[in-house]
Write a protein that binds this DNA or RNA. Sequence first.
DNA 1: CTGTTTATTGACCGTTCGGTCCATAACGCC
DNA 2: GGCGTTATGGACCGAACGGTCAATAAACAG
Lengths: 189, 189
Amino acid sequence: MARPREFDIDEALDHAMGVFWAKGYEAASLQDLLSAMKIARGSLYKAFKDKRSIYLAALDLYDKTTVETGVSLLSDPEAGDGLSRIRTLLEGVRDDEDRRGCFLCNAAIDQARVDPEVEARVAAMMRRLEAAFSTALKQSKRAGRWSAKRRTETARFIFNTYMGLRVLARSGYPTRELQAIIDAALRDL
Amino acid sequence: MARPREFDIDEALDHAMGVFWAKGYEAASLQDLLSAMKIARGSLYKAFKDKRSIYLAALDLYDKTTVETGVSLLSDPEAGDGLSRIRTLLEGVRDDEDRRGCFLCNAAIDQARVDPEVEARVAAMMRRLEAAFSTALKQSKRAGRWSAKRRTETARFIFNTYMGLRVLARSGYPTRELQAIIDAALRDL
DNA sequence: CTGTTTATTGACCGTTCGGTCCATAACGCC
DNA sequence: GGCGTTATGGACCGAACGGTCAATAAACAG
């Protein structure tokens, strides 16, 4: 019935996410986005309402990909013992070679305080990650060591460690130092 | 010999820091800064070279005040045992009632990657905080538990926890949950 | 082929951005 | 009181911002 869209909207969104991730919301200009997405202005505004809605869609994409991957890993009994899944996830942060940090964490700092919809998405992702850490703990050999309350708190502590690692990774901390932090955090679990 | 400046430059800078802290570098407009500093455009540009130099000066101010205060607390033998000084510092984050997070952490995420001078200041502050945590550990009753290397790593781990707490605090985590994270982090030290 | 619908492109819009400039004001010095 | 110097306030600047629009193109239905 009508002319079909010539670009893959998810692929374009992925590139947009890269720009927001690297530069933050305000510093990412329309020009930056258009170049990365390889489309023209008009096409962008046919596909998205405005800049903010691209950002929100990018957050959702991050949720569906990175966060979901992490949650799956933590919750998958076939990925080893609960504790070793946690370790695997944290070591993934350690190995983020381009040190981009965490889009979720960036959003929490630069937009969540001024945009309620960003705040809601950020909070939801954080709570899902926390819950996944808790699931992994519950499925570890040492699960018996923690009461339900204590397990929730421990999961939250690990999540806190995870966020810290993301910040330090973005700040250029070397792999070896990140590894030592992971070891210290998990030492007594 | 000449007309004296009518505003207190440090006080104005403190207000500018508040704006950058709350909104980030790009989102803080000249108008925002001028309103907060309560001066006119011309006066601002007599006192500072440009927007970026205000930001750098604000970072230095944060260093001289907040970071230095933290370092002093951690290093002060009269502030209790090393471990309890660490706990006091972390509980200060927990009690940050307006949940502003950490200007250092914000800068690490939103500007350090695109501005080498910001990056240098951020790295310097981070390393000083790390070192102060190490000092506090060294001066704790249980100092003997750690080799020098292990102490450095543990200090870095605590610093990582500190940064995570700052992010979570800015994200609105309730005091009680932050407290549980602190307890979990320090439990086995 | 014609008509309808929607995507593409880039010129164009008003606004806001960071930064400059200048007339005026407030000081110490002589 | 004049003079040199620096601060003040705000008009002003070009550039860049996010967003709109109209002409054109590409698809399908009839």
